[in-house]
Simulated assay, not measured.
Amino acid sequence: MEFTFAPIGFVRGGGNYPQEAPRQGVFARNEGVIELLPERNFETALADLGGFERIWIVFVFDRNRNWKPKVRPPDGAADRRIGLFATRSPHRPNPVGISAVELVRVEGRRVHIRNFDLLDGTPVLDIKPYIPAADAFPDSAAGWRDELDSTRRELFFAEEALGVIGFIRSHGGPDLENAARVQLATRALDPRRQRLTELDRAEHLWLLAFRTWRIVFTAPPVPEPIRVERIYGGYSAEELQPGAPDPYRDKELHRLVRRAFPPPEGK
């Protein structure tokens, strides 16, 4: 037996790469829109939805493949493999996901949402209202997750790092503040799965590589907060010379960042 589904619309907003997606919407700090398609009278179907504070989005994991029956979750169970169906892993045999997000308002065929864990362009299959009396069971047992330390780390940014982040974002680059929060504040650090390099064990200094950018941070033992110290580009001066190959088409932005925030001598 097979079923065929077609999107009713697409998410506009959020990151572009899987590494930018928050593990859950409660960890996100963003706003976006679900744009429904003009056919099939979807605008009328949205009537009366505006009175709900949250909605369920049924969507397609369109950028995830290669599911496995057991996985290593990113939040503290890295020393063991968990059965896929006991996790929220995005790698599913049928790439369908659900997410509870905040509803801001409905305008025509546009559903404005806040704090979501979806990527820009994600296909949406359905929208349902979140009904607290039917959907919330805060005292329910959570299996293997009840064994985890639920302490969440705070994440702070040095003023210098925030300056670079804002500059990159204002020039059309990735949102490195969101990327740092996704990779550092909502999951256990795991060099085997993240692009992490230990720079100084005594100082708890680490380097996170996110695409062509580098994020330097300090991570003292839990529950001490993580602090992002510095952001810089991963290209060398030679790689940024005119005429050098530019496979990611981002070297001009890296050149602007280097001019605005000169690296230490010799870097």
Results as ranks from 00 to 15, higher is better:
Leu119Ile: 11
Arg152Asp: 04
Gly173Val: 04
Asp146Gln: 06
Asp149His: 04
Phe167Ala: 02
Ser140Phe: 07
Ala142Thr: 14
Leu125Pro: 00
Gly121Cys: 11
Asp139Gln: 14
Gly166Ala: 09
Leu148Cys: 05
Leu155Met: 07
Leu118Asp: 05
Ile168Leu: 10
Ala141Met: 10
Leu155Ser: 01
Leu125Tyr: 06
Pro129Arg: 15
His112Ser: 13
Gly172Ala: 09
Ser150Met: 07
Asp117His: 10
Arg145Met: 11
Thr122Lys: 06
Asn115Ser: 13
Ile131Tyr: 12
Val164Trp: 00
His171Ala: 07
Glu147Arg: 10
Phe157Ala: 03
Ala161Gln: 06
Glu147Thr: 13
Gly172Thr: 09
Ser150Arg: 10
Val111Asn: 05
Val164Met: 07
Thr122Ser: 09
Asp146Glu: 13
Leu119Glu: 03
Pro138Ser: 11
Asp120Lys: 05
Thr122Glu: 00
Asp139Cys: 06
Asn115Asp: 15
Ile127Thr: 03
Ile168Val: 15
Val124Asn: 01
Lys128Ala: 09
Gly163Val: 00
Leu148Gln: 10
Asp117Phe: 09
His171Asp: 10
Ile127His: 05
Pro129His: 12
Arg152Lys: 12
Phe137Lys: 10
Ile127Met: 03
Lys128Cys: 08
Arg152Met: 09
Lys128Asn: 05
Pro129Ser: 14
Glu147Gly: 00
Phe137Tyr: 10
Trp144His: 02
Leu148Lys: 02
Ala161Tyr: 05
Ala136Asp: 13
Gly172Tyr: 10
Ile127Asn: 01
Phe116Glu: 03
Ala133Met: 12
Thr122Arg: 03
Gly163Lys: 10
Arg114Met: 08
Arg145Gln: 11
Asp139Lys: 15
Leu162Lys: 11
Glu154Gly: 15
Gly121Asp: 08
Pro129Leu: 15
Ser150Tyr: 00
Asp120Trp: 03
Pro138Phe: 13
Pro129Ala: 14
Tyr130Lys: 06
Leu119Val: 07
Pro123Lys: 06
Ala134Met: 14
Glu147Trp: 00
Ser140Val: 11
Ala161Asn: 03
Ser140Ile: 12
Asp126Gly: 12
Gly172Gln: 08
Asn115Cys: 12
Val111Trp: 04
Leu162Ala: 10
Asp117Leu: 13
Phe116Ala: 07
Asp149Gln: 05
Gly121Thr: 08
Arg169Gly: 02
Arg152Glu: 14
Pro132Thr: 15
Arg152Asn: 03
Asp149Pro: 00
Ala142Cys: 11
Gly121His: 08
Ala133Cys: 13
Tyr130Met: 09
Ala136Thr: 09
Lys128Ser: 06
Phe156Ile: 02
Ser170Cys: 10
Asn115Gly: 06
Asp126Pro: 07
Gly143Ile: 01
